[in-house]
Amino acid sequence: MSEINPNRRPAAILYLMLGMTAVLFLTPLVWMGATSLKPERQAASQELRLLPDPASSTFSQAAKNYSEVWNDPSVEFPIYLRNTLIVAGLAVVGMTISSAMVAYGLSRIRWPGRGAVFFTVLLSMMIPFPVIMVPLFLVFRDLGWIGTLKPLWVPAWFGGAFNIFMLRQFFMGIPRDLDEAALIDGLSQWGIFWRVIVPLSRPALAVVALFHFIYVWNDFLAPLVFITSRDQFTLALGLQLYQSKSGLTPWNLLMAASTMVVIPVLVLFIMTQGALVRGVAAAGLKE
């Protein structure tokens, strides 16, 4: 048979299928971007075109749409961006450090009860957020956090189950001899963690940080429940606020607002695609 050679070029039909798949997956985003560049009338029409008519007006129209959204006095996107960045920054730092520490305790030290603690990590991944959403709100209230951004970032400093799980898998793969050598050199556990484990795990830690950044950036339900004041809105909430005005908000502006929220993630994705994809694969493969 002719298929024995594994280096045989894939058939053209495969490229065709993959090309169509890629188009299907990208179309919603492309259409979102295209709509955001058009004047209102062209946006809400059945014309199939990517750029406004005339195409030379693309830049001026885009500038108009985006500045209108950005400067809308009733929906303060700049403030929401700032809030989102504050939350994301604090949460990402806290999540990465604390998850790494917990994962270290669960992988590099043998102690009675380790299995039980790891089991709580696994179990917590199965708890649907709505189950605890309501009482969690009351806990935050009693802590005096409602009306602040704290509910969105403080919990991250206590680690996240999925990230602990992933880092634990990674740490397990680091040879134990390294610790022992370090111990002989007189390093404490703390020293081993910072001088041996962390430097060796930079790629895994970067993936945790990236994923958590994207998670915080995208999270909608937690801000919906825990954030009450407009001063603390995040971008995802602001976007919904923008939509609920949609009785009077034209599609081109709504899509411009959406594009604004998507673009940072898009840029981050393009810059870190390899690491992200490896991270997902690693998390899914290990049992």
Binding site: S74, V75, F137, F140, R141, G144, I146, G147, V225, T228, S229, R230, Q240, L241, S244, K245
Partner: peptide, 21 residues
């Protein structure tokens, strides 16, 4: 003056949380 969507839900949550308008 702050425009608020789903105002009846948002307000209730804010009052419950002790941080109302």
């Amino acid at each position: 003056y702050l425009i608020t969507n789903s105002i009846h839900q948002k307000s209730l949550i804010a009052i419950l949380g002790g941080a109302p308008p």
